[in-house]
C-alpha cells in the first residue's frame, strides 16, 4: 500500500465503492457498490486502473483530501467545482496532484454523486470480495472521517492518452425508461398511467438504499399483503402511502411492497444521480 491520502474534511457523505459484492442476495447481502457504476468505471479507466477497483463516492458536498505523496486522479459523475491547491481542475480527465497537494470538491451543481478515482485504486479491507461500504447492512469500510488516512494500490497500466472524456452532465429533469414490474397487476389502470404521465419530485428522505419520490398517489387494485419476494436494482416499489421508491445499490434483497415497474439497466446510473428536490419522469417506451 502506498500513496497516503489524508482526509481533511470528509464532505457530507463520502464512501469507498467498487462494483460491489454480487451473488450473495439469498443471504440478505445487497450487491452495494457505486450507485452510478458508469461514472466509477470511467474514472478508473481515465487513470489507467482496472475499472473494477475502488474509488471514492462523494455525496452532494465533496471532501477535502491531502495527497501526501501526490498522485493521478480523475473526477466523474455529478457536476462539481474541483480545485487542487486552489486552482480549478477539469472533470472527466486525468489530473496530476503534486506531493502535498490538496484536492477540494465543492457542492455538486447537477447530479448527486461524484467519483474520485486514484491511480492504483483506493485500498480498504475487502469483505466478501468487495471494498464497498454498504450503509444498509453495515458491511465494508465506514464513511470517511476527518483525519483518516487512505492508502492506494499499485497502478497496473499506463494512464491513457485522453484529454477529456466526453460525458453529458446529469440532466435537470431526467427521463428514466421503465418496463412493467412483476406486480403491475396489483395497481389500478390509473396508477400505471400516472406513473409515466406525472412529474415526480425526489424526496430528501433518499439514500443509497432507495430514492423516495413525491407525487400523485398510486392506488392499488387489491388490498391484501404481498408475501416477501426478491428485489432488483431499479425496482420501483410502492408502499401503502402510494408514493414510489426506486431501489438503489444498498437496497434490502427481499421486500413486501409490490413492484409496479423496473428501471431499465441503461438508466440505473441516472437514478443513482437523482438529487433531493429535483424532478424526474418515467417513460414506458
Amino acid at each position: 500500500m502506498s500513496g497516503a491520502i489524508e482526509v481533511i474534511k470528509p464532505g457530507a457523505l463520502t464512501t469507498v465503492q467498487d462494483l460491489g459484492r454480487p451473488g450473495f442476495a439469498e443471504l440478505g447481502i445487497p450487491r452495494s457498490g457505486a450507485a452510478d457504476r458508469g461514472s466509477l468505471t470511467l474514472a478508473n479507466r481515465l487513470v489507467g486502473n482496472d475499472e473494477r477497483v475502488a474509488a471514492l463516492e462523494c455525496t452532494l458536498i465533496g471532501p477535502s483530501l491531502l495527497f501526501h505523496e501526490g498522485g493521478v486522479i480523475a473526477i466523474t459523475g455529478a457536476e462539481v467545482q474541483a480545485q487542487v491547491d486552489g486552482a480549478e481542475v477539469p472533470l472527466n480527465s486525468a489530473v496530476t496532484v503534486p506531493a502535498g497537494g490538496v484536492l477540494e470538491l465543492a457542492t455538486a451543481s447537477a447530479g448527486l454523486r461524484t467519483y474520485v478515482a486514484v491511480r492504483g485504486g483506493i485500498e480498504a479491507q475487502p469483505m466478501m470480495g468487495s471494498m464497498s461500504s454498504d450503509l444498509l447492512s453495515g458491511l465494508g469500510p465506514a464513511p470517511l472521517r476527518a483525519g483518516e488516512l487512505l492508502g492506494s494500490g499499485e497502478a497496473t497500466a499506463a494512464v491513457p492518452p485522453i484529454g477529456v472524456a466526453p460525458v453529458a452532465a446529469p440532466a435537470p429533469e431526467p427521463l428514466l425508461h421503465v418496463i412493467e414490474g412483476p406486480r403491475a397487476d396489483w395497481f389500478t389502470a390509473d396508477a400505471l398511467e400516472l406513473l409515466t404521465s406525472s412529474s415526480w419530485e425526489v424526496s430528501s428522505d433518499s439514500n443509497r438504499s432507495g430514492v423516495r419520490l413525491k407525487g400523485p398517489k398510486l392506488q392499488r387494485a387489491r388490498s391484501d399483503q404481498l408475501l416477501s419476494e426478491g428485489m432488483v436494482d431499479g425496482a420501483i416499489q410502492v408502499p401503502e402511502s402510494g408514493q414510489p421508491i426506486i431501489l438503489l445499490a444498498d437496497h434490502p434483497t427481499t421486500g413486501g411492497y409490490p413492484v409496479i415497474a423496473v428501471i431499465v439497466s441503461a438508466d440505473l446510473d441516472a437514478a443513482g444521480q437523482l438529487r433531493p428536490g429535483q424532478q424526474l419522469r418515467f417513460s414506458s417506451s
Binding site: 451473488g23 442476495a25 408475501l227 419476494e229 432488483v232
Partner: peptide, 16 residues
C-alpha cells in the same frame, strides 16, 4: 450460478 445466473433469491412463494 456464476456461468449463467448472477443471483438466485428465494422469497416466500417466489424465486427471483
Amino acid at each position: 450460478r456464476g456461468a449463467e445466473l448472477a443471483e438466485i433469491v428465494p422469497g416466500h412463494e417466489t424465486l427471483l
